[in-house]
Amino acid sequence: MRHALLPLTLTLIALFSTAAQAFEIEDHRWFGPKDGDVLRVISTTDTTILTPLIEVFLHDNPGVGLDYVVASSGDVMKALSEEGRQYDVALSSAMDLQVKLANDGFTRAHQSAATDLLPEWGEWRGHVFAFSQEPASIVVSAKALHADEVPHTRQALISLLRDQPDRFRGRIGTYDVAQSGLGYLFATQDARTAETYWRLMELMGGLGVELYCCSGDMIESVAEGRILVAYNVLGSYARARTDLAEHIVVIDPEDYTHLMMRSAVILKDGENADMAGRFVDHLIRAAWSTPRPQEYPFSDLSSDFTLQSDAQRPINLDPGLLVYLDRAKHKRFLEEWQNAVRQK
C-alpha cells in the first residue's frame, strides 16, 4: 500500500508546492483609521475593483478600519484552512473553495434583512453569499482579428485555430489551472459540460499556449498584442478595463457561458463577527438590490448581457463543487489537463 500511495503523496506535495512556505500576499492595503475597530478581509478580488464599495462601507461605519489582503484563491484557502490565519471575511471567486470552507466548518452562519434579498441559488446554507455573477469569456485582440473572424462559439474558435495554426502559434493564452483556483473551477466546469473543452485544450496545447495566473495579465497581454486570443477570462474584469476597450473584444460564447459567482463567507475564527456581518450585508445589498448602487463594480447581467439566457450556465453553489477538490480527482484532472496542454 505504501508504495501505491507514495506517488500520490509526491504529487500532492508538488501540487501545493508552496505548502511549506507561508501563503503569498499579492496586495495589502489598509482603509480607514488604524486605531479603531478593525475588519480583516482576505480576498481574491483586486483592491482597485472593490475600493469604491469599501469606501462607502467605511463612510457608513465611521471609526472602522479595514485591512484588505489580496491573495490567489489557493492561497486564501491555505491561509485559512492550513495556516489558521485569523480573518473576519473571505471573499473569493473560487466557488468550490468557498463551499469547501463552509462544508469543513471554517465559516459561521449569517442571517439578516440583506440575506433575504438573495435568491435561493445565490447562497449556500446561510454560510456562503454570492455578490456577483461574472462570465467566463473569450477575449480577442481587436486589432489583430478582423470583425468577421471573431469567434462566438468554442467551435468557431477551434476552427479558427485549426485553420491558421501558424498565425496563432504561441499567441494564445488561458489560465494555468494548476496555479489558479478560478482557472481550475472554469476548466472543471467546462470539462463537465462538453467534450469540446478537451479538443480545444489539445489544440491550444499544440499551438504552445501561454499559461497565466490571472485574468488581469491575460487582458493586458491581449491589449498589448502579445497574444491574440485568451480563453476563459473573467468577462467582468475585461469589461471593467474601459481604458483598453479599443484594443480588446470580449465575447461570451454563445454555445455556453459559465457564470461564476463571487462569494463572501464570514469566518468562524474572526474576532469581529458583528462587523463582518455588516460588511457582508453591504456587499449583498450592493449586488442584489435594484437599482444597483453606482459603486458596485461588476456588470449588471440583466442589462449588460446580450447573451441568450439558455447559454448562461450559472455554476451551482452545492456540494458537487467539492468533487473536483477531491485529492484523487484533482490529481487525475490535472494530469489529464497537462497531458492535453503540454504535449509538444
Binding site: 501505491a4 463537465r192 451551482n316 452545492d318 456540494p319 458537487g320 467539492l322 468533487v323 473536483y324 477531491d326 484523487a328 480527482k329 487525475r332
Partner: peptide, 11 residues
C-alpha cells in the same frame, strides 16, 4: 487503485 468521484455523487 484509482478513484474518480462522479460529480453527481455529491451534488
Amino acid at each position: 487503485l484509482s478513484v474518480d468521484i462522479p460529480y453527481a455523487a455529491l451534488s
